[in-house]
Design a protein around this nucleic acid. Structure first.
Length: 421
DNA sequence: TGGGAAGCT
DNA sequence: AGCTTCC
């Protein structure tokens, strides 16, 4: 059996661990730039829909609720604590997202009892409430988790029945909108051919689904039937591309602002590249104007700049990015967002083995570059982001993201530890 | 008026 | 390259 463990209202719960006054209150977490609602406590859910832009919140409601900027340093660290704790009780764990993981539950006599114990230990040791859904496949475990969360009698741990009749009763009341892998568009299309519930979809004709939808949805149907066919990448599998992009806290048309932003994005992307021990063959640079502004002219350029050989050297990648920026920049637009994407990533060592034109016994200057990059990474890891930067000095710029409602980094910064009085 | 990644067509 | 999905 497979369990899906999911943290309840994760971001809101993290904030509550260190600020108990938030307990029982309607709280919401905002996206970057304090833009829109990306997480809600249970108390907020009836008041505000997911994804609502902050400026659209009626002022009457705004007064009764607490909004916070997203604090990813805190959430990332809490996530690690939660899943370290889980791992102590079920070693076989697949991390899926910042607040979810699948666990293998074979070999436990009473699976539900074991999961109740995990739930309690995680709450005791980290302060985070979790729900666990149990079923034969990942898709069904997600479904079971949904029930565990929604129906109070299960106390957040629910094991899906396996006998056909009970299963039918459950799936017949479960809307396809809540099935993992079925989004809004697919759900509408399915409704049109009279498939409304998880049971309907489970009975659907596989060939028909594959021909009229996709192999992905076909897999979902199989998983609903109890046949495992969705595998997850484990954490060690390298990404195929790496993107960094941010909206500006304030629109800008200045080349200098864009150069600084692109430099930081390219730096950060290349750090991630080195972390997964890959090299990039090309970099894409893009700009966007404000797409919500009807009366200003729109311009969404992008360009791919090939690198003369696959590399993970920040200096080469930053300068290629700047070259790309100059090629697409036009001064008479107000830009809203910029970003870079590293493309066609390859495993670093494999590349050097295959490169028959490389100087034998490694070019000493290449080796020196590696050491330089490693040194920069180590210092930045120890002393904090951007302690060493390449070719930039701006500490804070007007275009940087807005985070006016940020809580402290209680667990990752010596200067922001919680005080006990 | 978010950001990052993947797979399919 | 564009669309859809996930969180």
């Amino acid at each position: 059996m497979i369990g899906l463990i999911d943290c309840n209202n994760f971001y809101a719960s993290c904030e509550r661990v260190f600020n108990p006054k938030l307990e029982g209150k309607p709280i919401g977490i905002l996206s970057n730039n304090d833009g829109c609602i990306i997480a809600r406590s249970n108390e907020l859910k009836p008041l505000i829909p997911m994804g609502m832009p902050a400026y659209q919140i009626p002022s009457k409601i705004r007064k009764q609720i607490i909004l916070l900027s997203s604090n990813y340093e805190l959430y990332g660290d809490m996530s690690q604590r939660v899943f370290d704790t889980v791992q102590n009780h079920t070693p076989n764990i697949e991390l899926y997202s910042i607040d979810e993981a699948f666990i293998r539950l074979d070999g436990f006599a009473d699976i539900t009892a074991h999961c109740l114990k995990i739930k309690n230990v995680v709450k005791r040791d980290t302060g985070i409430p979790v729900s666990i859904g149990i079923a034969p496949t990942r898709t069904l475990a997600k479904l079971a988790n949904h029930i565990a969360k929604k129906q109070a009698i299960y106390q957040n741990v629910y094991c899906l029945p396996t006998d056909e009749k009970s299963l039918k009763n459950i799936l017949e009341t479960f809307s396809i909108n809540n099935i993992w892998g079925v989004g809004r568009h697919i759900a509408n299309k399915l409704n049109r051919i009279n498939i409304h519930t998880a049971w309907d979809l489970r009975q659907a004709n596989l060939k028909y689904i594959r021909n009229n939808f996709s192999v992905t949805l076909e897999r979902t149907v199989l998983e609903l039937q109890g046949i495992n066919c969705i595998k997850l990448d484990d954490l060690s599998t390298a990404k195929k591309n790496i993107m960094i992009s941010r909206s500006f806290g304030r629109l800008t048309s200045k080349l200098f602002d864009l150069q600084e932003a692109i430099r930081l994005h390219a730096s950060r992307a290349t750090e991630k590249l080195r972390q997964q021990q890959s090299v990039a063959s090309a970099i894409l640079v893009f700009l966007k104007t404000n797409r919500f502004c009807d009366n200003s002219s729109q311009y969404h350029p992008s360009i791919v700049v090939p690198l003369s050989f696959p590399t993970d050297d920040s200096r080469l990648i930053i300068s290629a990015a700047q070259k790309g920026l100059l090629a697409i920049y036009k001064q008479d637009f107000l830009f809203m967002k910029s970003g870079v994407m590293l493309l066609d990533l390859k495993i670093k060592n494999r590349y050097s083995q295959l490169d028959c034109f490389a100087t034998p016994l490694a070019n000493p200057s290449l080796h020196k570059n590696d050491k330089l990059m490693k040194t920069i990474d180590t210092i930045n890891q120890k002393m904090g982001k951007n302690t060493i930067q390449l070719g930039g000095i701006q500490k804070s710029a007007p275009w940087q993201i807005k985070r006016q409602l940020l809580s402290k980094r209680y667990t990752t910064d010596w200067n922001e530890l919680p005080l006990v009085k």
